[in-house]
């Protein structure tokens, strides 16, 4: 145990910077992942093969490969076919691309859990499929989607440490850098852990609260 409080105070600003980068990656990643997840989830439920086949393929490919490999492909392999992304966009894109697939499954399950009669009632008064989805199905499904979605945010926050592989200075990478330069292993890593917990614990509590709130009554 070589926790050094003075060092801890000294590196706080650096860790804070790393923390902000982690937060930026996760918030943006989650934002785009949710949009991707919503559209892919809906597309996979359609009856049109040209919607279901590519989206199913996407989900299977993402779920069947490690996130770290996806990050490497997006940052190092895509330039060879002419797609150059800066580090931050590449990181956000990788996280959104990966989590979009997982989140699409959350949307799919949420939408499927709404009883068939709701669609029929909406269609029977002349609503289009899009209107039915927007005004009847999604508002009901979102109650069931929100808790697992928030859980995925926590997961992404932690997984964002994998973008270290493309030298993005997020929280974990920052801690590793400090530990090498200061010779103290314990302090920066514990410091980084505290910063992660600063977000993950309240958000996890929020999930529990959401499940209670949205689970019963209206």
């Amino acid at each position: 145990m070589d926790f050094n409080f003075d060092l801890f105070v000294k590196i706080l600003p650096q860790l804070w910077q790393g923390f902000l980068m982690t937060l930026l990656l996760s918030v943006l990643g989650m934002f785009f992942a949710t949009i991707i997840g919503m559209f892919v989830g809906i597309a996979r439920l359609s009856k049109t093969p040209w919607l279901t086949i590519p989206t199913t393929l996407y989900v299977e490919i993402v779920r069947g490969t490690p996130l770290m490999l996806q990050i490497l492909i997006i940052y190092y392999a895509l330039p060879s076919i002419g797609i150059n992304l800066e580090k931050i966009p590449a990181g956000v894109f990788a996280l959104a691309f990966c989590y979009g697939a997982y989140i699409s499954e959350i949307f799919r399950a949420g939408i499927q859990s709404i009883e068939r009669g709701q669609v029929e009632a909406a269609r029977s008064i002349g609503m289009t499929t899009t209107q039915t989805m927007r005004y009847v199905i999604l508002p009901q499904a979102i109650r069931r989607i929100l808790p697992p979605l928030t859980n995925d945010f926590v997961a992404m926050l932690k997984d964002s440490s994998l973008v270290a592989i493309i030298a993005l200075f997020e929280l974990t990478t920052t801690a590793r850098y400090i530990s090498t330069s200061s010779g103290n292993v314990f302090t920066p890593y514990i410091g980084a852990a505290l910063f992660y917990l600063l977000i993950t614990i309240p958000v996890s509590r929020l999930v529990v609260l959401l499940e209670k709130r949205l689970g019963v009554g209206q």
């Binding site: 009883e115 009669g117 709701q118 029929e120 009632a121 029977s124 008064i125 508002p139 009901q140 209206q218």
Partner: peptide, 12 residues
């Protein structure tokens, strides 16, 4: 329009 056996009101 149609009235359903199980109502199918929009619960939200």
């Amino acid at each position: 329009t149609m009235v359903f056996q199980l109502f199918h009101l929009f619960p939200h």
